[in-house]
């Protein structure tokens, strides 16, 4: 049924990378295993954003809020209730998706920049509430030492757990992108008015995409809890959202795997830069400017352009297309 959905020349590299990741813990030091796990979590978040940003053309400026909601939901269920742990892990993505649908329901009535503004304000509202509700969320301090299943006790356990969920999520999201739903979503990005004219309910389609993206952001949030065993308001701060935005841009936001590259670069850079200097955001800013000037299609977009035999159309301003 899924035959031919992944181009044949990609199969070998994908298999090689997967194999390398599976055997990585045998070779790499523990610290870098931790970093790899963090990259998986962040990459999942970035890809989920790209689902609405790159494929849907939706200015979801504050995507991290769903990441935070997923993480907090799990954290709260694990610490404040006596429900079984799997309930906590399952509830995170679902609550994130539900909040995505609620916030999205308000936002899809607006277009482009106005959508982004309303999305930021609603997201910031959630952030404010979370960072002030000391009695429930611990406010600025967050929640720490969250009990997790023994499976996640060792760094290798966390690594494999995260890797498996990450891989499964990737496959599911890839299928969604290649499905009629995904194809139609890209059409709404290119030309919403035309979509209406061929019988597509654009708003409902966008809302569904936001719900799906929020779900996977929630999955990433839950994985973060499994990895760090703590949550804090910074997870749903809007500056972090912009950082995720940068990952999509850096990797290439018209490609599926681009955000993974972006997340890997940003996380790895942050880790190594932080060793030498406190001025990480300066470095990030400079990188971003260099990207905007010299590599606007991102790393993956650039590589694909070099590799593709068939002509890819000229970098056409998205704003023009959407009118």
């Amino acid at each position: 049924m899924f035959k031919g959905i992944v181009g044949s020349r990609w199969r070998l590299p994908i298999a090689a990378v997967s194999a390398a990741l599976i055997f990585a813990p045998l070779i790499i030091p523990v610290f870098w295993i931790y970093i790899l796990t963090l990259i998986f979590v962040t990459a999942l978040l970035a890809i989920s954003l790209n689902l609405v940003l790159g494929y849907g053309g939706i200015y979801q400026f504050h995507h991290a809020v769903f990441y935070g909601i997923g993480a907090y939901t799990t954290a709260l269920i694990l610490t404040k209730t006596s429900l079984p742990m799997w309930v906590g892990f399952g509830a995170g993505p679902l609550v994130a998706a539900a909040s995505g649908l609620i916030i999205g329901w308000f936002c899809v009535r607006l277009t482009k920049l106005y959508f982004g503004m309303l999305q930021i304000s609603l997201g910031s509202l959630v952030w404010i509430i979370v960072s002030r509700a000391y009695s429930i969320t611990g406010g600025d301090n967050g929640i720490h030492d969250i009990p997790v299943p023994t499976l996640l006790g060792s760094s290798n356990g966390v690594y494999y757990f995260t890797l498996i969920i990450f891989m499964v999520s990737l496959v599911v999201m890839y299928l969604i992108v290649k499905s009629p739903f995904g194809c139609t979503l890209q059409a709404t990005r290119d030309n919403p008015q035309r979509c209406e004219a061929v019988g597509i309910n654009v708003r409902r389609h966008q809302l569904a995409a936001i719900g799906i993206a929020a779900f996977f952001a929630g999955v990433a949030g839950v994985l973060f809890v499994g990895l760090e065993r703590s949550v804090f308001p910074g997870l749903l701060f809007w500056v972090f959202s912009l950082e995720v935005f940068v990952m999509c841009l850096l990797g290439g936001w018209f490609t599926f795997a681009g955000p993974i590259v972006g997340a890997a670069v940003v996380v790895a850079l942050r880790t190594s830069v932080s060793i030498y200097t406190d001025y990480w955001t300066l470095v990030l800013g400079v990188i971003l400017i260099l990207l905007i000037f010299f590599l606007p299609e991102g790393v993956m977009g650039f590589l694909l352009k070099r590799l593709e035999p068939r002509p890819i159309e000229e970098g056409r301003p998205l704003a023009d297309v959407a009118g």
């Binding site: 049924m1 899924f2 031919g4 959905i5 599911v172 299928l175 969604i176 290649k178 499905s179 009629p180 739903f181 995904g182 194809c183 139609t184 059409a187 979509c195 061929v198 019988g199 597509i200 389609h205 569904a208």
Partner: peptide
Amino acid sequence: QVSVLSQQRKSGVLFRPAQ
């Protein structure tokens, strides 16, 4: 295809390859 899929009410199908 986007147009045909919409006409067939398949725009919302999630887990089948569009191609």
